[in-house]
Every structure is written in C-alpha cells, then in structure tokens.
Amino acid sequence: MNSNSISFFGFACLRCQPQWVWAWSLVLLVSCVKQETGVQGGDSLSLHVAVASNFAQTLEEVGAVFEREIGISLVLSPGSTGKHYAQIVHGAPFDVFLAADAEHPQRLVEQGFGVAGSNRCYAMGRLVLWSAQPGFVDKGIEVLEQNHWHHLAVANPEFAPYGKAARSALEGLGLWQSLQARLVRGENVGQAFQFVLSGNAELGLVARSQVLRLAAEARGSIWEVPQTMYPPLRQYAVILRDGDEAKAFLQFLLGEEARKIIRAAGYDLP
C-alpha cells in the first residue's frame, strides 16, 4: 500500500509529519485565546438574564428599550424554568432570573441564591383555546364536546405552567377524563403550540402571547379561557446577584414602559 492512496484530508500526514500535530494544537490554542479576550471585552455593561422561553421574545423588546434608555445591554439565556433552577443552584453566572412561575424564584430566595425581597411578579400568562383554522373555535368551549376533531394539544400537565393551567380548566369543565385519548402533550407550551401550528392537532390550549405573535391573518380562531377557570399564571423575576444594574433592570421591568410592551405581547399584569 503506498501512503499516497490512503491520504484523505491529509490524514496520512499525521504519521509521517508530526509538525501537523503541532500546527493543529497551535490553531486550537489560538482559537481559545481569541475567545477569552472577546468575552471580557463585551462584558462591561451588560446583565445576564435567564428567561423563561415563553417570555424571551418579549424581553428582547423590553431589553432594546432598556438599553437605549439606561445604556445597559441584556444577554439572554432562554430555557425552561426547571433547568434554569438546577443551573442556578449549581453556580450558573446569571444576574437576574425571569421564571415562568412563582415557586422557583421563591425557592431560590429561601435557599439563599436569590436576593431576599427581590422576587416580584412581572407578567401573568393567559390561556387560550386556539385553532389554526379560522372559525374553528368561534363557539368557544362547545367545540371540546364535539367529535369532529382528533387532537387537543396541551403542555405537559405535570410540570409546565400552561399544562397545569390547561389541566385545571379541563377538570373544571369535567372533560379531563373523557378527553384523555385525544390529548397530545408537548414538553412545554412552545411544543404544544407547534403541534397546532403545523396542523397535527386541530386544537390547542396555548398561551395568548404565542398566538398574538403570529401575523394577523395566520391567527386562525381563538377563545380566551376565562381567568376564573384556572389559577393565575404568575411569572416572577428574582435578582440573583445584587447590583445597581440588576436593580435598575428590575425597576424598569416593573415600570410603565415595560408594562406597555408586556401587555401588547398578550400578557396580563399584576
């Protein structure tokens, strides 16, 4: 076998020419040096925010105004509240945490990871019955008792806030048991929404903020589940690392300007 025939991507060179190994090691090291400096350079006036996925886009809008007015930029890490909680407990470098519920920020304060007294409600989610087809849910909840549809998408009722809300609404209607075979569960409300949007489920119990993000002609039909039918979906924020920037941001988030953006995005306010 000649060594030319087995050289592919210059592989055989590794054997006969150790300088390739050195050169490659150098490339790897240089790539890291560049990253370190890049990170430090951009870190001066920014806040690191862990935010519940459902609120990430709204926070981007709020953050743009905040940066323009106060001069502090937000670095967002969207994710599920349960995962964020585990990461914060294990030392994740977040300054502020915008959760999808009230319990996790509360627990962080109790365990000493959150600043006492800084956990505040910044938005309240609203549950809607939604179909991507126009006219499908115009008559409200009656459609749930009919048989011309196959699937109703909900978020995971065990731990996702919107899933819990969907469950209590359906239980209140006495439909939770009878609809079991037709429920499809997304890991979170984002996935439940995708089931409906992609047409795989005719109906879904999703967040009003999700539907409002669609272009007006794509909104299908929507019925607002009355707030009396499920416990309020209170989303709490908490400061994890005390500082003037974090305080300023929390104050801004609870202020009138941010409230306008949050309300327009489809949330209620405390």
Partner: peptide, 20 residues
C-alpha cells in the same frame, strides 16, 4: 447554560429559534 458567545452552540440556537 446557553450563554450567548460562550456556551450557546448551534443546536441550542436552533432550539431557541423554534421555541420563540
């Protein structure tokens, strides 16, 4: 921890885009 510029990789960027 999904930190932009440090630990946010492509697959997570895709997931974030889908989620939002």
């Amino acid at each position: 921890g999904n930190i932009p510029g440090q630990t946010k990789v492509l697959s997570i960027a895709i997931y974030d885009h889908v989620e939002s």
